[in-house]
Write a protein that binds this DNA or RNA. Structure first.
Lengths: 219, 219
DNA sequence: CAGTGGAATTTTTGATCATATTCTGTCGGC
DNA sequence: GCCGACAGAATATGATCAAAAATTCCACTG
């Protein structure tokens, strides 16, 4: 019945599952998340679900909605600017650090992610776009080999995910300028500063898109 | 038997308790943390303990030690530099933002924390120093009213706490230059840049102390 | 004969679940 | 419109099972 290659404990499986759902926009901002609901959907006991939810809340991916109810947070403009500030402080640096540890194989893998990302764009596949965009950045940052900074970056992506989804879902993936190509190009020449700048540009673009929507109060 | 004024759920009480223990150096770096141990010490069931541990691990205050055992992390030099970079990126900005929302009462309270901190230094009370130093910064950052940045700062303090404790416990609280006075002075005149600079200086000093110890490989 | 290596057992700890309890919000009666 | 009972959901407990670590014990070697 369960031929998963998973040797992972339930609470981690649930955590990842929920995490992906948030990261890739399967849960809308403001949507309530109940323990019992997940117990039935994921077919596990409540203890693992509880722990997964607790972890996600402490990472800011979920919030306590007053009376012990949790939901997906919905950042307002001020909070979005905080996320923006933090991401711009951390992520370009991560990209810069990653350059040290990058060889041809790693670049190859990044190109692969980027190809899939572009395919998703062509297909108008929002969820695919979000997923491969995440994987591209996450893998790049992993290569930096910095546990602390990476975990912060991950936290920030969790907070940004649902909002990105809303905007993309509304305006489509049609006109997304590809900053990844520039980053890849800079990576090939080992130019750390240019890589950092490209990543910064990529982030700024995504941030600006959401910010405009928030300014227009359309969220 | 339990005339605590606490209306808090157990898992939050346990979380705070454990959090404080880490933050104020009651747990040494590398020290293992067991669920059952905490169950007996804190006299609660294992579910709340489990959740508290899970939260702390996701905040980097505890780490999975290979085979589903957790312990207090012991940052090496590289990780400490990461923490330093992140703190210097985030905390001065938080201080700057806090200036907007600060009035005489808030300054009064900060002065109070600082007084207690100085009393702890005079007394050679390491734990008291750590606690009031934390409260000073935490309150200042809270005043910024920025949920995202504050939570990142808190995460970083959790990672820094045990190491600070080790260094202070070894060299004492004797010669700690007081950068808080400068921050308070700048706060009174509402000079955001100077406040940010003072906080930056305060952080740099603490970081340098640990870094030297790590360089000498005395940890 | 003493000491070492390792296999098997014991013990400790973690993971999960079923269940009981507490709290919140709501709906119907007054 | 207010108050109290009820339903549903979250919190907390202890039991049970599984996995890992610690310990014991024995055989074999030097």
């Amino acid at each position: 019945m369960s031929e998963k290659p998973a040797k992972l404990p339930d609470h981690q499986r649930v955590y990842r599952k929920l995490r992906d759902m948030i990261l890739f926009g399967e849960l809308a901002p403001g949507q309530p998340v109940t323990i019992q609901g997940l117990v039935q959907v994921l077919d596990v006991g409540m203890t693992p679900v509880r722990e997964a939810i607790r972890r996600l809340t402490s990472e800011g991916a979920l919030i306590f909605k007053g009376n012990r109810r949790v939901s997906v947070p919905q950042p307002d403009l001020a909070q979005w600017n905080e996320i923006a500030f933090a991401r711009l402080s951390i992520e370009p640096e991560l990209a810069r650090l990653a350059v040290r540890n990058i060889g041809p194989e790693e670049i190859e893998r990044l190109i692969e992610y980027d190809d899939r990302l572009n395919a998703s764009i062509d297909r108008g596949d929002v969820r695919g776009y979000l997923e491969h965009n995440y994987r591209f950045h996450a893998y790049l940052y992993d290569l930096a080999g910095t546990e602390v900074l990476s975990s912060i970056a991950n936290m920030l992506w969790l907070r940004a995910g649902p909002s990105l989804r809303v905007v993309l879902g509304r305006y489509g993936t049609a006109n997304l300028p590809d900053k990844h190509a520039e980053a890849l190009d800079a990576l090939k020449s080992g130019d750390a500063d240019r890589v950092a700048a490209a990543v910064r540009g990529d982030i700024e673009q995504g941030i600006a898109q959401v910010r405009e929507t928030l300014l227009a109060e359309k969220i």
